[in-house]
Design a binder for these strands. Structure first.
Lengths: 158, 158
DNA sequence: AGAAACACTCTCGCTCAGCGAGATACTAGA
DNA sequence: TCTAGTATCTCGCTGAGCGAGAGTGTTTCT
């Protein structure tokens, strides 16, 4: 094995890419875990906050039920999660006036800032290094990510 | 917002790439979680197996101490983890004859096959779709992944 | 309108992963 | 040999998440 040339060169390159991708996701996970630790959050809490921030930006209302569904938690776990986030002051429960069975989760100002403080520098850093890529290269990277995502989602369904 | 041209086009493209990357890591996490569930593993167990398989392939000996360090577990948690994996028949504890304080973790045949059954198809699928990329494009994807990894590791240290 | 069926959230009791502290087993240096 | 150091494991605890089921409010059917 190793770097042999010929017809297997492309496959070798691809394999190395796949391993690079995995290494990257591991690093991202670790980074998320560290951030969570520092802010007294659990990994699940962080994932929940990300989801809530995304939804807030998209103008979508989120209820405990929806949130738990996304995170694969049952109702009991979801309640506990929402309790934690509310106790930490990151979200607030608000009764939906239209369907008073439902509770809406609204993200507090501080949580938004927390998200910014974490993702902001990271995104800025990424955008900065991508400055070295021209339009065609960015398009290739995009094609690459889309292709990878497609394979993963296919694997998740099959 | 949207697709405007001019000097902000590159930044927009970069932002979209970053979000694509995040979406991909989320998908990968979910896939891993599902696999773990199906095989009676916890996320940590899966991460441990991946690490052990990588080390085995690289011919590196792994001890509980090293494993726990990698996974950010303390010694008690590590012992529990190794107990679980051993009980499931995925690994075996072997006393190091040279330094009899140490225990080496050896991966059993079944765990290797399990890893193959999970990562094999995924990697094959990825390599297959990468067949549409020529050498120059693969190089660009590689540069992209390296750049992203660099930013993440930098964020983890700073 | 009244009652049954349904939807959404929360409570209770439990299991088990991971932590802190410390015990145990072995090695290396004075 | 005695002491310091390293690797692993044991014990008791905290807390996330689960299953079951209890409210509480809403829709549908007669």
């Amino acid at each position: 094995m190793g770097t042999e040339q010929g017809s297997t060169g492309a496959v070798d390159s691809s394999m190395r890419l796949v391993h690079l991708l995995r290494a990257l996701t591991v690093e991202l996970d670790l980074l998320g875990g560290e951030f969570a630790n520092v802010n007294g959050l659990h990994p699940t809490d962080l994932r929940a906050l990300i989801h809530l921030l995304d939804a807030a930006r998209a103008g979508i209302e989120v209820t405990p039920g929806r949130l738990g569904e996304q995170l694969r938690l049952n109702s009991a776990g979801t309640t506990a999660l929402v309790d934690r986030l509310e106790r930490l002051g990151h979200i607030r429960r608000v009764r939906d006036t239209r369907d008073r069975r439902r509770v809406l989760l609204v993200v507090e100002e501080g949580a938004m800032e927390l998200g910014q403080s974490f993702f902001g520098p990271l995104i800025n850093g990424m955008v900065a290094v991508l400055g070295d890529f021209d339009a065609a290269e960015l398009a290739v990277a995009r094609r690459f990510l889309l292709a990878m995502t497609q394979v993963v989602t296919a694997a998740r369904e099959g």
